[in-house]
Nucleic acid binder design. Structure first.
Length: 421
RNA sequence: GGAGAGGUGGCAGAGUCUGGUCGAAUGCGCCGCACUCGAAAUGCGGUGUUCGCGUAAGUGAACCGGGGGUUCGAAUCCCUUCCUCUCCGCCA
């Protein structure tokens, strides 16, 4: 959520910056509403002042056994008007808040301006793209042969996009999750969280999924609960409506969770195998930090995600997203993509964002120092998501005989160095 | 799912029956000052958030889990909802 006070001061600049995200935004209507609200609020506050004052007088008269009938009659009328004003006021406030909640965050000034994902900027790359003396196969074929994956039965059980991992596939999934959690806990200083998978609307609003992205989430109507699209939602909301101690900064959490996404509108696009799913697993890092330190922390967090891939010895590249590709809540974001030699493309496995105070404002997460109350900065990133990671492992580590080797760091988790028929 | 108890400031905890100088006693904590070589103890003073108006000093409103109602006036009465705890039932 943006700061209405800032919008008041400089609407044009803010509008321009938001519009680099692609899309028109109307702040004029918002300001009209805001102005109306403030005028009415002042008027009503004054009326309440009068009522409070006279009520005191009535109290005094009654105690002295004097007659207060005239005052009470006046206040009856005034109270009616106050009630009417209050009703309109709360409707105005609600409208204003709804409009504010629908406005995306504006990009950081360091975010490159662009028109589409084609304008994303490659920041760095790591590792060597492997050469094969045979035509590398696609992960799906390999995984099915090795009975690691049974998408047909997954579809039978739940529909397409709900993968069924079997045998070594299930074991590899579990190994990856444990490896990543262990790494972040022991080497990167994160506290492990295991969050709820269902959240209520306040939480989904706090991180920015609601109201705009409601169609992308699964919703349980009977209980008014949403399935989480990422652990970011429950973990960030741990501190909703809290005042944190700046002495505790940075607060660093890492959480494994299932993630559920309807992927409405993306049917048929990059869906082969494990590329795009309705349900997948992810290890997510979330940090609450001092505003002055948030970009420093963000860079470190990206490094934490990179370490996962380096230890797995997988080639990757880091992209700085341009304004047009930035998500609703992000001010700045870098994606990490793994090379998949079978699919012959780069696959996004991590998205590391700095939201600055956008989420904190929505979720009301603050800290206090000598100069008063301030909103924290929140940053998060995948560390990392498993399905495309598994694709990359299968495709990069495949052998000509159809087997796959297991990356060194996973061997103790897997109890083997090779998966074969 | 059934029955009961309760949700008050950073924390503990009064106030709710009997509505009115209650944004709220008291204790603890925290900050400042005094005393002290220093510390402890003690004494004195201060110590919430949000939204308005104001350059500021200041000032007005709102907030006692959330929402609504009664009333001139609600922490206090009524309705509703969420949460916590205890007991019973069911259950991985």
């Amino acid at each position: 959520m943006l700061d209405i006070k800032e919008i008041r001061i400089n609407p044009e600049l803010i509008r321009q910056r938001i519009e680099t995200k692609n899309g028109k935004i109307d702040l004029e209507a918002l300001l009209v509403l805001d102005n109306k609200r403030r005028t009415l609020s002042k008027e009503t506050d004054d009326m309440k002042y009068q009522r409070n004052t006279v009520s005191q007088a009535i109290s005094l008269k009654k105690r002295n056994k004097e007659d207060a009938a005239a005052e009470i009659a006046d206040m009856q009328k005034l109270s009616t008007r106050i009630k009417e004003n209050d009703i309109e006021l709360s409707s105005l406030s609600q409208k204003l808040k709804n409009q504010l909640l629908a406005i995306p965050n504006y990009p950081s000034l360091n975010t490159p301006v662009g028109k589409s994902e084609a304008d994303n900027v490659e920041i760095s790359s790591w590792g060597v793209i492997p050469k094969f003396d045979f035509e590398p196969k696609d992960h799906l074929g390999i995984a099915e042969k090795l009975k690691m994956l049974d998408l047909k039965r997954g579809a039978k059980i739940s529909g397409s996009g709900f993968p069924l991992y079997t045998g070594w596939g299930a074991r590899l999934e579990r190994a990856l999750i444990n490896f990543m959690l262990d790494l972040h806990i022991t080497e990167h200083g994160y506290t492990e969280i295991f969050p709820p998978y269902l959240v209520h609307s306040d939480s989904a609003t706090g991180t920015g999924q609601l109201p705009k992205l409601a169609d992308d989430m699964y919703y349980l109507k009977e209980d008014d609960l949403w399935l989480i699209p990422t652990a970011e939602v429950p973990v960030t909301n741990m501190h909703r409506d809290e005042v944190l101690s700046s002495a505790d900064f940075p607060i660093k959490y890492v959480a494994f969770s299932g993630c559920f996404r309807r992927e409405a509108g993306s049917y048929g696009k990059d869906t082969r195998g494990l590329q795009r799913l309705h349900q997948f697993n992810k290890v997510e890092m979330v940090q609450f930090v001092h505003p002055d330190k948030s970009y420093e922390a963000w860079e470190t967090l990206i490094g934490n995600a990179e370490t996962v891939l380096q230890k797995l010895e997988l080639p990757y590249r880091v992209l700085e997203l341009c304004t047009a590709d930035l998500s609703f809540a992000a001010a700045r974001c870098r994606d990490i993509e793994l090379w998949a030699p079978g699919c012959k493309k780069w696959l996004e496995v991590s998205s590391c964002s700095n939201f600055e105070d956008f989420q904190a404002r929505r979720a009301n997460i603050r800290y206090k120092d000598d100069s008063g109350m301030h909103f924290v900065h929140t940053i998060n990133g995948s560390g990392v998501a498993t399905p495309r990671l598994m694709i990359a492992i299968i495709e990069n580590y495949q052998q000509s005989d159809g087997s796959i080797l297991i990356p060194k760091v996973l061997q103790s988790y897997m109890g083997t160095d090779k998966i074969q028929i």
